[in-house]
């Protein structure tokens, strides 16, 4: 008898949760100013316009590797390639995935040369900061590694877009995650590189009422299919905005 009541109660609860979940349909979007990379991508623009070939290296950790997505096709680098190819007909787009889970600025700046040079990349998306924040890597050393990585990349002809931390429970709970985002923003300004504000974009999803379950796996750290696909889509918009601003800005699904 008691067991049956318990079962009924849980069933009612599940039904309730299901209907509330049904009510909402997620939409992948971000305010226009959040998609501004802050610096033009001159090398990328030239590569698209003159060589009709764009070679991108996605440097980073587990987000780049696609941990948390049910299919590697959904990882943001794969989505980036898909979206850019569709938006740039006649341009051959390559995206080389160099994500290694658990790494950050220190290891990634150290392999910048060997991972970027053979691919002859014009653009490096450097997804970084998350694991440094988790490991409490000193902020000044973090900044130095970012600068070092950029200098190496530039010496072999690539320009950069930083992708900062993800806004997820495991990162938001850290005492100083915003410090790492701030350092990235400072270095981006100082070095005149692009900055894709993943942290601020994802925070705006959360503030607009999107639940974590919509974009984070239940480890509380990694992006799920929706999160990966949406970041890939918004990053594509940002890059396209940066290489041909006037034409593209209206096409983006930016809301304001």
């Amino acid at each position: 008898m008691k067991l049956r009541n318990l079962l009924l109660a849980s069933f009612g609860f599940v039904a309730f949760s299901t209907t509330t979940a049904l009510a909402e349909r997620p939409e992948c979007r971000a305010r226009r100013e959040l998609l501004d990379l802050g610096n033009p991508l001159a090398i990328t623009r030239a590569a698209v316009a003159e060589q009709h070939q764009l070679r991108i290296v996605a440097m980073g950790s587990s987000s780049t590797q696609g941990y948390g997505a049910t299919n590697p096709m959904f990882s943001y680098p794969a989505q980036l390639k898909m979206n850019l190819s569709a938006a740039l007909p006649g341009v051959e787009v390559h995206v080389f995935n160099k994500g290694i889970g658990g790494q950050d600025a220190e290891e990634e700046s150290a392999r910048m040369q060997q991972d970027v040079k053979p691919e002859k990349a014009q653009l490096v998306i450097w997804q970084v900061g998350t694991n440094s924040a988790i490991r409490r890597y000193p902020l000044d050393k973090f900044a130095d590694r970012l600068r070092a990585g950029i200098d190496i990349g530039r010496s072999i002809g690539a320009e950069f877009v930083f992708m900062n931390l993800q806004y997820v429970p495991a990162i938001v709970a850290l005492p100083d995650e915003e410090e790492y985002a701030r350092v990235m923003s400072d270095v981006a300004k100082e070095k005149k590189t692009g900055l894709f504000r993943r942290f601020e974009i994802m925070r705006s999803w959360y503030d607009d009422g999107m639940p974590y379950a919509q974009f984070v796996t239940n480890d509380g750290l990694h992006l799920n299919d929706f999160g990966q696909k949406c970041i890939g889509k918004l990053l594509s918009h940002s890059i396209l905005n940066a290489i041909r601003p006037a034409q593209f800005i209206d096409e983006s699904k930016a809301k304001n």
Partner: peptide
Amino acid sequence: ELLARQIYPIDK
């Protein structure tokens, strides 16, 4: 926040 710092990430 202090609690969240202890529990996340919940590694699979």
